[in-house]
Design a protein around this nucleic acid. Sequence first.
DNA 1: CATCATGATTGTGA
DNA 2: TCACAATCATGATG
Length: 401
Amino acid sequence: MLQQQPLTGNGPSNGRGLGMSGHPGMHSLNSVHQPSQHRPDGGDAGLEGTENGHETRRDIGDILQQIMTITDQSLDEAQAKKHALNCHRMKPALFSVLCEIKEKTGLSMRNTQEEEPQDPQLVRLDNMLLAEGVAGPEKGGGAAAAVSAATSSGGMSPDSSLEHSDYKSKLSQIRSIYHTELEKYEQACTEFTTHVMNLLREQSRTRPVTPREIERMVAIIHRKFSSIQTQLKQSTCEAVMILRSRFLDARRKRRNFSKQATEVLNEYFYSHLSNPYPSEEAKEELAKQCGITVSQVSNWFGNKRIRYKKNIGKFQEEANLYAMKTALGARQGNDSPHTPNSTGSGSFSLSGSADLFLGVPPVNGDQSVCPMGVQANGNWQSRNSPPPGTSPHSDHSENSD
DNA sequence: CATCATGATTGTGA
DNA sequence: TCACAATCATGATG
């Protein structure tokens, strides 16, 4: 390619002959019309001798002819010809001219393809991978940071260490794959680069190949490989993103509490029916008992209150059940059969049975038939409410009368 | 697959 | 900031 240009001689000839100082071009080489031109360096032997000028021209023409036709020949033929040309007595001279031409064209090309301002996308990907703990220093900081960021953004207490470790292991999996691939990539890149460089060096014996040209070639190769690298990084980023979203989704996912947990919560709820607003301490205690977070306890109570209020009838049976249970537990003073609650619920324990209504009226789930017992106790729903800011003026007429 | 149950989120008001 | 109310989204069930 590069060497073709001079050979085809398509550049404008200024008829200055071989002159090293002039504007070179094979064309001029082809037609050495003005042997009178003298070369300033005068390094090469007898190209422009006086008496044998004609012979020289024929020599050059001959060489050029051979070069021009070399591509049409078979490989073996070409190899042989190459060798022959290499040994040709005019070779050094021709070679030096070619070198000069290359130097010139190389210079002009250099301006066209200049610097390469680091692909911004690649930079972004790099930063991302670094932030996610995939690219950075081994383990520790990155992944943990990412996880804590994820949890804190969710606004929840970060207690699901199980999911954390899951996330971490998945992340490190991605990480190792990424590094393996990156290594492979780098190895391939180096291999290919050295291969090409060797090739060029080897070729530089038969055709002019400047170091700058090799550099350029290497740059081109690196650019090509860099696009592969970008792809690798991109897909890694995607994998991390997917993992992360899945992780967050998993946190967001609703999973029913254990039976025990709901039992504990319900017990508290129904035994504090008149004021089902557990204090912070009570929430903590409940959370501990249920193996959930305080905010989950809050959620549960929020949901429970609103749903209970909305449809007291529906919850009647449940209310009675828990009332009974609690009462039983309180009365017997020891373990209630299926309420782990009694174990250590000191702060709000069963003693709060003031709220209880033990006269369990047999309600058949009819919403409008609201048992007085519960209603009377559950004054938080309609009357003045103890908790601050609770003014549930809501006339849930569907059950009040 | 439709429906209900239920934990979580969001918007609003005090 | 908390509670409430509405709503979302998923799990369980038939």
